[in-house]
Design a protein around this nucleic acid. Structure first.
Lengths: 190, 190
DNA sequence: CTCCATTTCCTAGCGCTGCTAGATATAGGA
DNA sequence: TCCTATATCTAGCAGCGCTAGGAAATGGAG
């Protein structure tokens, strides 16, 4: 009976290999370079094997995004935990968010720009996404004033997301990035 | 000599027909449905003709984006002009921005999400984009306080852009959209 | 150990994409 | 009327995501 266990384990390992290969390739060369043929070559199996693990390329990108949500949540937690005070926490968490997006642009895209539908249908994503959101909410709670916390958090989040995406698509001048972030933090922590 | 003039005119008309066809098709069915073959069929010419007008599909999308920048600038100008006072102007312009993005999602994507490089290399885009940006800047000038106006404007813009994009990709709850916009306006016009 | 059934995997190919080379038709000037 | 130059089309390339159908490997029964 252990042979079946071994098979399942190997299968799980192969699935993780696909996700990792997609992630690495996307980070190195962008999502355009992530083709099913290259992924198959990377894991040293043929193309159709991918489809026995994932419904399609979108599902693979969604899986990468799921990992990303967990990483982002961790980064935000770390930033908030090490902040000296509440106001500084807002600045630190904002900086951590932006740093995450800049260091892993392809993953950030998979999380927030591409693969629109799939991930949010599953169970995993809401968990880690909600964790990250909760971390943001706790960070801004002391400065939210009379505003509804959830709405306030979402708006702050949108500000961060807008900065990140406009910056990355060259709609904003590269210098001034820090100053814009400072303005945003100032506006949301007065 | 007038035959040459006629030819140039017809050529310009055909170029505009391509842009309009791309725009309409993108609005109706999304950019995925805009293929060079469908565009060619729409203008009743063969595929290669597209390439005598534009370098490639990206350039066609960029041309659509250019038109979009002009429309957006107009919408912002109208909104600001009809506002009762400075504070109301911020709210009205913000609402106009969001409305533009929601009513023409495909065009907004071409302007700010896709077609990253091409448009900003040409001359036209900076003009109309700068016009829209200037409109935003004049709107928030009375409420910018001590902040550098350009930085302040960019940050406000990022907030709007973040709201729009996260909303559209279902990362934010559909209800609460107005409240989030209200929070943003409040933060940037206290 | 052999045979069969089942699962696993690959080869080959479909219809589509953006894009282009080379042939063809059209038009203007001598 | 013929020649040249421009305008346009037909046909095709290489690549994409994805899948049907057959081959290979595997595990259990006799």
């Amino acid at each position: 009976m252990s042979t079946q266990a071994r098979r399942e384990r190997e299968r799980a390992e192969r699935e993780q290999a696909i996700i990792t290969a997609a992630r690495d390739l996307a980070l190195a060369e962008g999502w355009d370079a992530v083709t099913t043929r290259r992924l198959a070559a990377e894991i040293e199996y043929s193309q159709p094997v991918l489809y026995s693990h994932f419904k399609g390329k979108d599902a693979i990108m969604a899986a990468v995004a799921v990992e990303g949500f967990a990483e982002l949540a961790d980064a935000l937690t770390t930033a908030r935990a090490s902040a000296a005070n509440a106001r500084q926490a807002v600045a630190d968490v904002a900086a951590a968010y932006v740093a995450f997006a800049e260091q892993r642009p392809a993953i950030y895209d998979a999380m927030f720009t591409l693969a629109v539908d799939l991930p949010f249908a599953t169970q995993d994503v809401p968990t880690d996404l909600a964790r990250g959101f909760a971390e943001l909410a706790e960070t801004v709670r002391p400065v939210a004033g009379d505003h509804d916390l959830e709405t306030f958090t979402e708006t702050f989040w949108s500000g961060l997301h807008g900065l990140v995406t406009l910056m990355r698509s060259n709609r904003l001048r590269r210098p001034g990035h820090d100053r814009r972030l400072a303005v945003l933090v100032d506006r949301f922590s007065r």
